[in-house]
């Protein structure tokens, strides 16, 4: 759905509830999609990325921005179950799709086994890469479960996380955590 929204703004009044949103007279589009299992509609400029949509239009800041252009994996979310880089995915490509972010993985009293395992194994230090890392790991585990595979190797985990850079841990405890979550979930 295309709409041209013109916002008359006085110079001294850049009204904004979330940063960067709805400032300029520009073409916006309504994106309808399923976000963390809930239907969602949001208006975004048509040249925004999915990461901008999540962080700036919706306010879900769990997906991080580390490299600007698809090099680090901190922005990884799942699109129809598969991990993708939201910082180079166009927001409009989420239309009618299922998007899952770290916020949907588990909250409050019901953390996901991955979140528990990352905490218990000391797999998160600064935590900036962790949301993206867990989205890749969650996809790996679910894909393997769907394929009814019963074993997981460290190399498989490392390969699946090969697009997520971490600068704190040296990865060892991250691989431990994914192994632990896998054991928990199967």
């Amino acid at each position: 759905m295309k709409q041209n929204i013109h916002i008359e703004q006085k110079r001294d009044n850049p009204s904004s509830t979330s940063p960067d949103f709805c400032h300029r007279a520009r073409q916006v589009e309504i994106v309808s999609f399923v976000l963390n299992s809930e239907p969602c509609q949001v208006a975004v400029p048509s040249h925004w990325t999915l990461l901008e949509l999540l962080r700036y239009a919706i306010g879900l800041t769990g997906s991080k921005q580390g490299c600007d252009k698809g090099d680090c994996g901190a922005c990884t979310v799942r699109l129809n179950g598969q991990p993708v880089l939201s910082c180079i995915t166009l927001a409009l490509d989420a239309t009618e799709q299922h998007i899952d972010t770290v916020e949907g993985l588990g909250m409050g009293g019901t953390p996901h086994p991955l979140q528990n395992a990352f905490e218990e194994c000391g797999a998160t230090q600064c935590g900036f890469c962790t949301p993206g890392m867990m989205m890749s790991a969650a996809a790996l585990i679910e894909n393997k479960q769907k394929a009814e595979q019963t074993n997981i190797s460290r190399l498989e985990i490392a390969t699946a996380l090969g697009g997520n850079l971490c600068r704190c841990t040296g990865y060892r405890k991250i691989l431990d955590a994914v192994e632990r979550a896998w054991a928990e979930m199967s």
């Binding site: 520009r26 040249h47 901008e52 409009l92």
Partner: peptide, 12 residues
Amino acid sequence: MLRLQPFELVQP
């Protein structure tokens, strides 16, 4: 963050 310049996206 590095932003995209505005463009028109068409999705045939």
